[in-house]
């Protein structure tokens, strides 16, 4: 590969990315940073946890993406009585023409390229674990057989932050498996006008399928090739260490409000997310600015706050913002 071919790949990446963004923009109004965040997770081989109040377009975003990307899409509405088999699939007894009975595996909805796990915190930990294991391993084990999931495999889980009764909040270890945690806010007045114009008229806009699975996998490889300088990588590591209360480099706020800091998986998410961010902005090197841009999404669900933080009503975003302001980039 030569420098010229690299430039061509970057050009193709940019072209594909803009196609997706334009198509998604025909359905989803505003929330461009969320759309970019979801695309970043998809291209960085991660999964995303979407948090937002009902009706802001979480499910619509995922459906639109699935349509645009020409991927197999499935949706699971998580409820307390949902069982792991309902997700993974189950073996049923079948009979062949000779009358011989045998087990046949009926794949569950997890066998898709894009999976929307709606209100993932409503199901029991057992069911959640089945999903999260598949997210981590990209394969499922059923009936003594391990089956690989189709690639790309991309999970978008949603959580409703308002109603917490009767829910099973995800443990920190499982939250860590989500690449990003994105927050969808309520649209502004102009955006609401746009939403109403698009959704309350006779014809709703349609999107075209622009990318196939192969192109997405190629884009994923492109992301991994982006070089990162050691000082920038060092900055990402120091950011992570700053969230550790027991670390020498721990931030004062971390010592006061954080029980456990971000894991090394968080640093990986920082670097990969920064690479995608750099490519989105037509750069083939990772800058400190890229790391800062993805830091909140990559780390906010990976730090465990203590009671003091809850009592003082301090959230993870506030702490991370202070850390970002105080940790100086390496020279």
């Amino acid at each position: 590969m030569t420098a010229a071919s690299v430039e061509r790949r970057i050009e193709q990446f940019q072209k594909n990315l803009h196609l997706v963004r334009d198509e998604v923009g025909r359905i989803i109004v505003g929330n461009q940073d969320v759309v970019d965040g979801v695309m970043t997770c998809l291209l960085a081989r991660g999964h995303v946890l979407l948090e937002g109040i009902p009706g802001v377009g979480k499910t619509k975003l995922v459906q639109t993406l699935a349509d645009v990307l020409h991927l197999k899409f499935s949706r699971i509405q998580f409820t307390p009585d949902l069982m792991p088999g309902d997700i993974i699939g189950t073996s049923i007894v079948r009979e062949d023409e000779a009358g011989k009975k045998y087990f046949e595996f009926q794949p569950g909805p997890i066998f898709a390229n894009m999976l929307l796990a709606d209100e993932v915190n409503r199901s029991t930990p057992k069911t959640q674990s089945a999903l999260l294991e598949a997210m981590q391993e990209n394969s499922v084990s059923a009936g003594g057989t391990t089956r690989a999931l189709d690639q790309p495999f991309f999970v978008l889980a949603t959580m409703n932050p308002l109603e917490m009764e009767g829910t099973y909040p995800l443990p920190e270890a499982q939250l860590d498996r989500f690449f990003f945690k994105l927050k969808m806010g309520f649209p502004g007045i102009d955006q609401m006008h746009e939403v109403l114009d698009r959704t309350t008229q006779a014809r709703e806009p349609k999107v075209e399928r622009t990318l196939a699975a192969g192109e997405i996998l190629e884009m994923r490889d492109t992301v991994r090739d982006v070089p990162i300088a050691r000082p920038v990588q060092d900055y990402a590591i120091r950011l992570t260490l700053a969230t550790h209360p027991e670390s020498d480099q721990g931030h004062d706020l971390a010592r006061r409000y954080i029980r456990f800091g971000a894991s090394p998986r968080g640093t990986q998410a920082l670097i990969l997310g920064a690479k995608v961010h750099a490519l989105i902005h037509d750069r083939i090197h990772v800058a400190t600015e890229d790391v800062q841009a993805v830091a909140l999404s990559a780390l906010r669900h990976r730090i465990l706050l203590n009671f003091e933080a809850e009592a003082d009503r301090v959230d993870a975003d506030a702490i991370l913002t202070r850390i970002l302001a105080d940790v100086a980039p390496a020279a």
Binding site: A3, P227, V232, I284, T288
Partner: peptide, 28 residues
């Protein structure tokens, strides 16, 4: 320049081994 020069100085030794770094050095 979004850390272009800083990254270029740090990545310069790898320019011969990686086409990506070489492309980046040209841009830098």
């Amino acid at each position: 320049l979004k850390d272009t020069l800083k990254s270029a100085l740090a990545l310069a030794p790898e320019a011969d081994r990686s086409p990506w770094v070489a492309a980046f050095m040209q841009r830098a």
